Simulated scan of single mutants.
Amino acid sequence: MIKALFKKEFIDTIRDKRSVVAALFGALFTPLLFAVMMTFNIEKARSVDDVYIEINNADMAPQIVELLDRESIFHAELPSTGKKFELNGETHTHSKISLTFSDDFESQLSSGLPANILINADYSDQERSSQIRRVKRVLENYEGAVLNMRLVARGISPLVIDVVDLEEQDTSTPGSKSAIILGMLGVFILFSVFVSSTNVAIDCSAGERERNSLELLLMQPVSTFDVVASKTINTGLFGLFAGTLSIALTAVVIPFIPLHKIGMAFNFDLEVAVKMWFIILPLAFFAAAFQLVTTFHAKSFKEAQTYIQYSIMLPLIVPMALEFSKYKHAALDYLPIVAQQQAISKLIRGELTDFTPVIGGMIVTMLFSYGLVLFTSKSLKSEKVVLGL
């Protein structure tokens, strides 16, 4: 009976062009968005933007001004209003940072006394904090150079101020480094699975109710469990289809992301793609079952559209909540969404050697899906749910 009901649901779904387009959009959009974001962030990380600050009494410290210029930190008068100002016929943005050397800066420096420098800026501005750090780094480097010269002038080796000789050895590989940037890849793929099944879930639940076909279907000599199970399988297959396309397109776009520019690499081969597909397989049906619970308990089609927006945020909210809470427990590796996100993350880092949590997570996810289907099927025995009262 489930087979016949599934065939009916599948034919109804593919007739609805919106559901098919939504599935394709969710599958194609997320990998492309990921590739664009990563490429943009890599290019931005490699580029050094010019910073314009106001330098007062610059003639007191010409060497520092020269060092600032080398670091693309240039002098510009503070604009009277806003941050924009004209320079050589071009419009630039002022950092609103002011650097002032004291009137006796040169004489104090020559006397071996501390020379005063004032940095005036809004430290609460997050965008400006990186620019402030760039300015302070130049000043600290200059201070260290002057200190070394003073020690040498007094016949003292600069090594006396080095308490320890710290050596760092980076054991990370290009593949493990790439996991830092590609950490969101798994979330994007899970997100595509949830997004692409939303239209199908709404249409076969709240949509059928508004078309008065749900009540007619439940009047047939079939169990409510078979009805919900067929709808879950159909909805889950669309999510799985989207996830498959998303993985395939990710394999295509990964080589175009310039990871090599920052010393990183990631080989998205067929083995990785197949493992990732098996990881998302149970989650597609969990997403379908969860969305059907949401849409069946909505009183109208519009209400179902509103509620389901929150369900597609689960792949983003759950990992973020665990990351911010810093809560760690072995049981989390077996929970739906978390299990898949953790497994994909380890797969990207090349650390997926123990498949016990993966298999356990797949089993638990399917059990959760079965429980949701059972709950929805029992709910459909109530007139309030069927009629949306």
Results as ranks from 00 to 15, higher is better:
S325D: 03
I279N: 14
W277D: 00
M276V: 10
Y307W: 11
E303D: 07
F296A: 03
I317R: 02
I280L: 08
V293T: 10
I312K: 03
W277G: 12
F301D: 01
P282R: 08
S325C: 09
A289C: 08
F296W: 01
E303A: 09
L283F: 06
P282Y: 12
S311G: 05
I308W: 03
P319V: 10
E323Q: 12
P315G: 13
F324P: 01
H329M: 08
F296N: 00
T295S: 09
A298S: 14
K326W: 06
H297T: 12
L283G: 06
F301T: 09
W277K: 11
Y327A: 03
A287P: 09
H329I: 05
L281G: 09
L316G: 06
F286P: 06
Y310V: 13
F290H: 12
I279F: 03
F285P: 13
Y310P: 01
V318A: 08
A289N: 09
T294E: 02
P282I: 15
Q305N: 13
F324Y: 11
P315D: 04
K328C: 03
S311H: 02
K299Q: 13
F278L: 01
I280Y: 03
F301W: 08
W277C: 01
F278K: 02
K299E: 14
A287D: 10
F285L: 10
M320T: 11
K299M: 09
T294D: 04
I308E: 02
I279K: 07
T294N: 04
V293Y: 09
F286V: 12
Q309I: 13
K328Q: 14
T306M: 02
F301Q: 06
V318Y: 02
T295W: 00
Y310W: 11
M320A: 12
Q309T: 15
L316M: 15
P315H: 06
K328V: 12
M320E: 00
P282S: 15
T294I: 12
A289V: 04
A298T: 02
K326M: 13
E323L: 14
E323H: 04
Q309P: 01
K326T: 14
I280P: 13
I279P: 15
P319G: 11
Q291S: 12
A304D: 02
A321F: 09
L281F: 15
V293Q: 07
